[in-house]
Design a protein around this nucleic acid. Structure first.
Length: 228
DNA sequence: GAGTGTAACT
């Protein structure tokens, strides 16, 4: 591309930077980022910064992530909902739900002027975080608060909560919630089904599990490696 | 007019 008239753009660079971050090759990502800025004179945007922050958070390099946020501020690039969601999710995955809640409070208190309002991804991450800690009452509380905020739980929100109940061996809630998904007009996807399968087998409901597996085939939801 | 970033199962 560099040899043609079709020079790599901010989108080209961001695509590669994001891929490197996802492969945990954060140093290579930064190398490319610096090449883009200092050699090519292409200004980074909120997307390239969010990718880098995501990569740093997933490696637990919180100080550097915070440094990048500061750098964005200096460059007058405002973080948006997705930038904050990356932080919320990373904290939740680390079991740092309190920190995640703090980020959400910042979003609520200071973000509304810039159209930054926690969305369904934010709360799905938080539910997942509480589920990972086995705090199902809290997870349920967040789930119930979603509607009050005018948001609509999607299949990921349901699957996260479902996974929590499965790990908790709460069969009653699992069955109830799984029915509710279809009842709300949502379609359980392969991840939802895999979660259910694991839950059903764990409590010895092998017949129900096989029935669900067969239904997956019938409804064209292709089983994947996790299913098997 | 288009293209890049966030959440669930293993």
């Amino acid at each position: 591309m560099e040899q043609t008239n079709c020079k790599p753009s901010i989108v080209t660079y961001s695509t590669i930077i994001d891929s490197l971050c996802k492969d945990k090759l954060i140093d290579d990502a930064f190398k490319l980022f610096k090449e883009m800025v200092f050699e090519k004179g292409i200004l980074p945007n909120v997307i390239s910064y969010t990718s880098l922050i995501c990569g740093l958070c997933k490696l637990g390099r919180w100080d550097e992530a915070s440094k990048m946020l500061k750098e964005m501020e200096d460059e007058n690039i405002s973080p948006n909902v997705q930038t904050f969601n990356v932080l919320v999710d990373a904290f939740c995955k680390e079991g740092k739900v309190e920190e995640a809640e703090a980020v959400i409070n910042i979003m609520i208190e200071t973000g509304s002027a810039q159209n930054i309002v926690p969305d369904i991804v934010t709360y799905s991450s938080l539910i997942d975080g509480y589920c990972l800690r086995g705090e199902m009452i809290k997870a349920r509380e967040i789930f119930d608060s979603i509607t009050l905020r005018g948001l609509v739980p999607d299949v990921v929100t349901y699957s996260s909560l479902l996974n929590g109940y499965c790990k908790n061996l709460n069969v009653e809630k699992v069955v109830q919630l799984f029915r509710e998904i279809s009842g709300k007009g949502l379609k359980p996807d392969v991840v939802t089904c895999n979660t259910m399968l694991q839950g059903l087998f764990q409590v010895g409901c092998c017949v129900a599990a096989h029935k669900l597996f067969n239904e997956m085939h019938a409804q064209g939801r292709i089983p994947d490696r996790c299913t098997y």
